[in-house]
Design a protein around this nucleic acid. Structure first.
Lengths: 226, 226
DNA sequence: ATCAATTAAATTGTTGACAATATAATTACT
DNA sequence: AGTAATTATATTGTCAACAATTTAATTGAT
């Protein structure tokens, strides 16, 4: 019996299909598996040291998550997003994270706000430092949004945003190797948002978050039209 | 070669796994498979006349769609929603369908509005008639929302709403055998919404749709607290 | 040499068998 | 009789082999 408890809680890696699902999933999100590329079953099953049975189950599950597309008798391809699909996601995020932020402002207790400020302080240091700048800026931004959604207390909302949409946008960034283009401005907006949450001003919190995401969308569009 | 082209377009039923995925999926949505009940692989594979391999692939795909939950070495259960999860979905729908309706108001051409009116006329007849009243009221309501989301032109939004959230709420209704409780009022609100779309008043269209869904949520909460 | 037809290789789809685990039934004990 | 331990059954997880289909390579004709 191998020590295989990869995580301490909330995971269920006991089957090969589940384990390889996690691995392929992160490989897709991290950009190790190129968007649009084909999945070769014999190759992957050999690479992971399992047979095709559980591998195919993992791929089917990924299909359900819309991370791969399967064409009958042809095979599975890593999903690949074009710019208009990214804009679609921004539209949805604007709407849903506005909601999340409103709910967060209603629910948040002082300790939650403290943790958010802490995260932003950490984020600020990373903006000023040079090492690993771009990578950590992206991650810091995601962490912030992640925590807001968690504060909303709406589990389904969390699933959609943190379990689906964030991953897809990240996938696109890796795909196009885009850099964060307005880190200082974004940092300020984050603080504004925490201000609103801190005073339980849910309406303002919603408005600010929507504007924050709308700005990111506009920046992306500008970069393309330039 | 059997004539197996179940639908004329947009389907890919050529593999057993895909075919049985569709069948189980609709069985869940239609309420034929009871929420919370266990899936027995030998039984289902016999029932559908296939082996366990493709059946398990279908179940894994359903897991990815969050329609079943799999516990390792135990089995798969049809997902079962409690009331607070339904409320969560209402919150999300309020936000997303507001967005959808705003986009629809921007995009809609006169012919689209004509079709919406037609749908509502049909819906009105079904309210007045007695036969199959409840069932068709529900379906009519869903058709209306479905068409609005389609008019939004946002494919991802369509996937989330029409491919996921609608099904889950329907599942709950079957589960609790609830009836539509405010059909005439809902009918009026639908017409109001089309009015706004017709004049391309996107802001109003969004507001009305959000209010429409919020009312449905309140009605549900009232029924429970009464 | 270019293209179509044919053959060969590789990949996907499906099945049945076996191993591992969990559930049910039986036995044994206080 | 009630409960713990043990056996038996059923179900899930995994694998390897075979069938069906697609893709690549080869051959042949104009």
């Amino acid at each position: 019996m191998k020590a295989k408890a990869e995580f301490s809680l909330g995971t269920k890696p006991s089957t090969l299909a589940d384990g390889v699902f996690d691995r392929i999933r992160t490989a897709i999100i991290e950009g190790e598996l190129e968007p649009g590329s084909k999945i070769n079953e014999p190759q992957l099953s050999k690479q992971y040291g399992i047979s095709r049975g559980p591998l195919r189950e993992a791929i089917r599950r990924l299909e359900g998550c819309k991370l791969v597309e399967i064409k009958p008798n042809i095979g599975a391809n890593i999903v690949s997003l074009n710019i208009s699909q990214i804009i679609e996601i921004y539209e949805i995020r604007e709407s849903l994270e506005g909601l999340a932020c409103r709910l967060a402002a209603t629910n948040a207790i002082p300790d939650d706000c403290f943790r958010l400020r802490e995260l932003l302080t950490q984020h600020e240091k990373q903006i000023q430092s040079e090492n690993g700048r771009i990578y950590y800026q992206r991650e810091g931004d995601l962490d912030f949004h992640f925590q807001i959604v968690q504060l909303s207390g709406n589990g389904r909302l969390f699933d959609i945003l943190c379990g689906e949409l964030y991953h897809l946008q990240r996938l696109y960034r890796v795909q196009t190797a885009s850099e964060p283009s307005r880190p200082i401005q974004a940092f300020k907006e984050h603080h504004q948002i925490v201000d609103a949450i801190e005073t339980n001003d849910s309406e303002l919190a919603e408005l600010l978050m929507k504007r924050h995401i709308s700005s990111a969308k506009s920046t992306l569009l500008d970069q393309l039209n330039q």
